[in-house]
Design a protein around this nucleic acid. Structure first.
Lengths: 347, 347
DNA sequence: ACTTGGCACTCGGTAGAATCGAGTGCCAAC
DNA sequence: GTTGGCACTCGATTCTACCGAGTGCCAAGT
């Protein structure tokens, strides 16, 4: 995977070139039309003629910041151009209306973590009109608060485990013999003694006896720990997939992007890759994933009690409103972090 | 809401008209092009000339089964045309490969109901290339097997309830006073005595005393029952939303359909409306929901132990492959019903 | 009373030509 | 280094002509 100018300093543009680049990006984001020298000269308040702008543009094009769809069309930013723009973006703020919307949301939202994350995803979409991705993950460090084995019928038991972070996991256990209620109750008691305080990734000393109860206990523990790797708790919530149809024009592109969003594992990997690189935006093919070449993905990490616990993301076309979107992602991720850490329970 | 020919007998077409209609539908579904008299005459093995077919077509058009996009184009089926086609479809079968695929799926699938439903949704999409909808619902009749109140901290408890159908519900309880572990344990015991065997919609006699434990119990019961209406257990799983982009050509249509799929409540209502009407397919505007006028929705009910428990559905363009899709929905719903009723546990 | 071949007619789709105009690159002058 | 001027490019738009699939109608055939 390639390193980007966000991490390597990269060249700086002189002030005028920077202004021009910024003007091009801004206008292109608005209009989706190649932008010409004259409109740049008019917009940006650098008192120069279109001709001057043109000559600067050739330079910018030669250096890879701009591109021409064809001769005699205006310029369009390249991924590198967007990258420069983003890297030199003075941190945006979000409107007071949205501020209010977010604050309201977080004071009202209730319920389980999952639901909060799902709702947050919808919030982000409403705020920005882009498809949003919320990844919640990594409960592995949570410890067991309580375990209970429940008899469904003689051969089926249900193992319900409550963790310190409020997560509840359930597992089906199938006993190889007909278990009595007494067996189950005893197994349940032993499991409690065994598991409380442990976390999913810690080893547990299971009884090696061969009686019914011990077998049940072993099966239950095995079942619980079997899921540890999958569990790692990665969950994805995607909001506003219909926005994809607004953001891209080719039906084929829309199909591709949607197909990608369906592969949740892929999305998680993608988001975490970007986080690992310390980026907050991946533009075009920066993430090295070809089918998303026409997309930009903004991410902002969330954490719970200081531990990384996922991220929120926004997926849009490369020509997206970076300032607003990044601000929204940042603010929401901060609120979410606080909320999940239990800091703003003011009701 | 309108009644349809599926429930009211409606007129019958004479054999030749029926053959012609069927030919038109079949070819249009394949090609998406208006179909002309000559190709019908060639395809269907009714030994008549195109001219005859044409004169029949005018009748069919007058009666509302066919339409002409414009003079001098071929004919296209109307919703009514599709309806007739579907109502007179000899029940289709599905290919042996798919049979195999389904059988394999259901012997291998494991885990919680939710996951099974979600996976089933994906299966249906893979089988048919249409967007699939799986609605699971109505656990209200399930009874409580076990309850447990767990102390998160002095003011936060977690109520975990296990139902006879294997569902596990959790609720946050906030105590208005600092609860000790002893309080919580005692409350937990009382809750068990109180709730086991009841269902979510049954009334429960809560203790009226004013001590800590009684208060906790009351709060827990209130919290649990508060969710009964929302809970009713309606869950929706949607698979293959990217197929929407394949099924419809206008980007705007794609957007609309996606936007609808995002509103889960709407989807549930829609599916249940159709089921209530005793239909297995809603074509075009039959469901009375305008934005989906260009869609057809195939549904097949699922049940658990004889009780209705949701449905599987397939969403496609009105020109969809009804035979295959209906067969797939039917077969999968049957398998799912058997699976959820615990009948095919052959591992 | 149907069925059929014949035939004029319709009208969307496609191809080509003409035109427009936004925007460029270059250059000579400032 | 900047600027106005200017010829040039090339996609987009419009217009026209035309093709042909498919129709509706009719008169003749069974």
């Amino acid at each position: 995977m390639v390193r980007h100018s966000a991490t390597q300093p990269g060249e700086e543009l002189d002030s005028r070139k920077a202004t021009i680049l910024e003007a091009v990006v801004s206008e292109y984001v608005d209009t989706a039309q190649p932008v010409g020298s004259s409109s740049v000269a008019a917009t940006a308040d650098l008192d120069v003629s279109p001709a001057t702008v043109r000559s600067e543009m050739v330079t910018l094009e030669r250096e890879g910041y701009l591109a021409q769809p064809h001769t005699s069309a205006g310029r369009v930013p390249t991924d590198k151009g967007y990258r420069y723009f983003v890297d030199h973006l003075r941190a945006g703020t979000i409107g007071p209306v949205q501020q209010q919307q977010i604050r309201e949301f977080f004071t009202n939202v209730r319920g389980e973590v999952q639901e909060v994350l799902e709702q947050t995803s919808n919030l982000l979409t409403r705020l920005t009109s882009y498809t949003s991705v919320v990844v919640g993950g990594g409960h592995t460090h949570a410890t067991v608060l309580s375990v209970q084995l429940v008899n469904l019928d003689a051969r089926h038991q249900l193992l319900v485990t409550v963790f310190s972070d409020g997560t509840v996991l359930k597992h089906n256990v199938r006993s190889t013999f007909a278990a009595t209620h007494v067996d189950v109750a005893e197994a349940s008691r032993q499991l409690n003694a065994l598991l409380i305080g442990t976390s999913l990734d810690s080893r547990v000393q299971v009884p090696s006896r061969h009686d019914h109860v011990a077998t049940l206990v072993r099966e239950a523990v095995a079942e619980l720990h079997a899921q540890a790797p999958t569990f790692d708790g990665e969950q994805v919530f995607i909001g506003g997939s219909s926005k994809v149809a607004e953001s891209f024009d080719g039906v084929e592109t829309v199909r591709q992007v949607l197909a990608i969003l369906e592969q949740e594992l892929l999305v998680v990997t993608l988001v975490e890759d970007i986080l690992d690189q310390g980026l907050s935006v991946a533009i075009g093919s920066e993430h090295g994933y070809e089918p998303l070449a026409s997309c930009a993905l903004i991410v902002a990490p969330i954490s719970v009690d200081g531990e990384p616990a996922g991220a929120v993301g926004l997926l849009g076309p490369t020509r997206m409103k970076y300032r607003e979107a990044m601000a929204a992602a940042r603010v929401v991720s901060e609120h979410l972090t606080r909320h999940l850490s239990g800091e703003d329970e003011r009701d």
